[in-house]
Design a protein around this nucleic acid. Structure first.
Lengths: 173, 173
DNA sequence: GACAGTTGCTTCGAATCCGAAGCACATGGC
DNA sequence: GCCATGTGCTTCGGATTCGAAGCAACTGTC
């Protein structure tokens, strides 16, 4: 028997629903903007942005997948798509024969630059408009803690083959 | 083009990323739990929960779609799936011949009751564990406002049929 | 009542997504 | 070196998703 069907109180329920709804609404809108502005899906944008943010402009597949919270197979698919469009290149990792390093190209950076203003504008309109500066800071703090906690806490029955701790590979030095 | 790439400051970026990442991580974990506990996808759970929450246990398709931020066609697909499993029924609306009313069945409620404890438990572990009571309240407030704002603000291309883009030049008539 | 425009839902096709299985390389024990 | 096991990525099959197009019913105007 389930000992106690632990009822979430109204506040918790409200926070949970607000989180899910807000992120869904935002994601949908952003997705449309990205599609219009640069024919990118949300994941593709996230990937390009992640790569563009990296010092070397490149990352390993697994790290990318973890970064954007995506399945490995899904990432393979998207990486292929992006490669076909010339926005990234894929090459064998230097130190690990089976590793694949994904690198953003100049075209990729160009597309990124193309969509970014609109992206930011949309965020301002939809997400930040009704929020004060303090709200945004608080939000970043609270959700940041939640995210960090979830990243550390493996799902109860992680079916994954094995969870490996990140050994931050410091690139060229 | 926009000559001013309005740069989001670090805090805004942090809030945005935290929102996306937190909701993604949460959604993925919840999805697994729902799959294991009751063979439900996240949307299906949302639909059942929405119906179970309604006084009459039923809603119109469009209202459901809006509620869970979903496409109409996607909802049709899921409603069919749920109907095949006997968790909901679909019937013609009384007042509108073309409207379809979806109603949760006893089996549907049973499945809902089956997965709910685990669902709540997971939320406690993943989302609420690192947050104080005040955090949760604040979160509900801020994200609630953001959600309400987004619900009111039609996306630039709302997709409604009557809403035609100005860019389309065939303004026949 | 007939008409045109609108709305509710479904069908259709194509894209995207995931988990499981598979392949290739890596690593440790012998 | 050789095997067992672990890890990185891809392939495969199936499920899910969306937008556009289509059909049926509603609405207002005349």
């Amino acid at each position: 028997m389930t000992s106690t069907p632990p009822p979430l109180d109204t506040t918790q329920l409200g926070a949970y629903f607000a989180l899910i709804e807000a992120s869904s609404l935002l994601k949908h809108s952003v997705e449309q903007q990205l599609r219009d502005a640069g024919d990118l899906s949300y994941v593709q944008f996230q990937l390009l942005a992640t790569l563009g943010d990296a010092p070397t402009g490149s990352r390993r597949m697994t790290d990318l997948a973890d970064g954007v919270v995506y399945s490995r197979s899904g990432l393979t698919y998207q990486a292929q798509t992006l490669e076909k469009r010339g926005l990234v290149t894929r090459s064998q990792s230097a130190d690990d024969e089976r590793g694949v390093t994904v690198t953003i190209t100049d075209d990729g950076r160009a597309v990124l630059a193309e969509v970014f203003p609109g992206h930011v504008g949309l965020l301002d309109d939809l997400l930040f408009a009704p929020l004060s500066r303090a709200d945004v800071e608080t939000l970043a703090d609270i959700l940041g803690r939640a995210r960090d906690h979830m990243r550390q806490t493996p799902p109860r029955s992680a079916g994954a083959r094995r969870r490996r701790k990140a050994a931050v590979t410091d690139d060229s030095q």
